[in-house]
Amino acid sequence: MKLYVFKSLPPFLWGYTRDIRAMWTMEECGIPYEPIGIDCGPNGLQDETWYEKINLFKQVPTIDDDGFILTESGAILLYLAEKSGKLIPADLKGRAQVTRWTITSLNNIEPFALPIFFADLQGEESPHGKLRSWHVDILARFFVPLEKMLANQPFLTGTEFTVADITLTCVLREIRKTEVLSEYPNIVKYRQRCEERPAFVKVLNAYEDRLGIERGSAR
């Protein structure tokens, strides 16, 4: 399977990009893959015109599974789990819960976490900066019940690590250098628990090596 990933990034994007999600899932699922590197410009945009034929929006990641092209990280992660039969339950209701939590991470949490990253990057007088506190307050709506839930179970759907946990962990990484999670110790422990998995460590090391940056730069 081919996986389109970044081979160059401006420093402000190190460790935040969504190709990490796909690589982590492939490692957890034991799916061999060929990484194909995409250059990212200084403004965080990939401009290769040839790539538009593969991904309409020229976004990363994209997978090519023997000619079957799939984009969007959430769809890719669920596809890889279904294909391998790993990181997702066999029963319909169990799979629905994994899908539910994957969508929750992408639709309810990431739309408010990502603007905080941009706010800190662009400064308090930027449009994102002026709305930062509002985004933090909205996240509390989701983090408070998550904090309570994770006090009683290690992962989103219970005792088993699933592809939904990869999604949420990577979304949480978008605010890993902020103070936002400091009020939620169970969520912090959850993220640490997921990032201690050997597959994640292997992927992040390979990610840093491919970008040619020092070990730990994308932590």
Results as ranks from 00 to 15, higher is better:
144 V>M: 03
137 D>E: 14
8 S>Y: 08
182 S>K: 12
211 L>Q: 03
6 F>Q: 10
144 V>C: 02
12 F>S: 05
46 Q>V: 11
96 A>M: 12
160 E>Y: 05
32 P>Q: 06
143 F>V: 09
50 W>N: 09
71 T>L: 06
109 I>P: 11
77 L>W: 07
215 R>H: 13
93 K>S: 10
153 Q>E: 08
99 T>L: 13
22 A>W: 06
4 Y>Q: 06
160 E>F: 04
208 E>I: 06
126 S>W: 10
121 L>I: 01
162 T>M: 12
171 V>N: 06
117 F>K: 00
92 L>Q: 06
189 K>S: 14
192 Q>K: 13
178 T>R: 07
138 I>M: 00
218 A>Y: 05
113 A>G: 11
197 R>A: 13
40 C>R: 02
42 P>T: 03
195 E>S: 07
162 T>Q: 02
98 V>L: 02
184 Y>N: 12
210 R>Y: 04
218 A>M: 02
149 M>N: 04
78 L>N: 10
104 T>R: 10
119 A>L: 05
131 L>R: 13
115 P>H: 05
29 C>E: 08
153 Q>C: 00
98 V>I: 02
202 K>W: 03
164 A>L: 01
101 W>S: 04
176 R>Y: 04
100 R>G: 05
56 L>C: 04
159 T>V: 07
77 L>H: 02
34 E>R: 12
104 T>E: 08
12 F>G: 08
72 E>T: 08
183 E>C: 07
100 R>F: 14
4 Y>F: 15
5 V>H: 04
142 F>R: 00
65 D>A: 08
90 A>G: 10
158 G>C: 06
14 W>C: 13
45 L>S: 13
133 S>L: 06
14 W>K: 03
105 S>G: 15
164 A>G: 04
189 K>G: 13
27 E>M: 07
150 L>A: 03
33 Y>M: 02
27 E>W: 07
87 L>W: 07
97 Q>C: 01
72 E>K: 12
191 R>D: 11
142 F>T: 08
70 L>D: 11
197 R>D: 14
143 F>L: 12
202 K>T: 15
78 L>W: 05
87 L>G: 07
27 E>G: 05
38 I>M: 15
25 T>V: 15
61 P>K: 06
178 T>V: 06
8 S>G: 04
8 S>W: 08
149 M>A: 15
18 R>F: 11
218 A>V: 08
3 L>K: 03
182 S>Y: 05
6 F>V: 05
179 E>W: 10
183 E>T: 09
199 A>M: 07
130 K>D: 03
182 S>P: 00
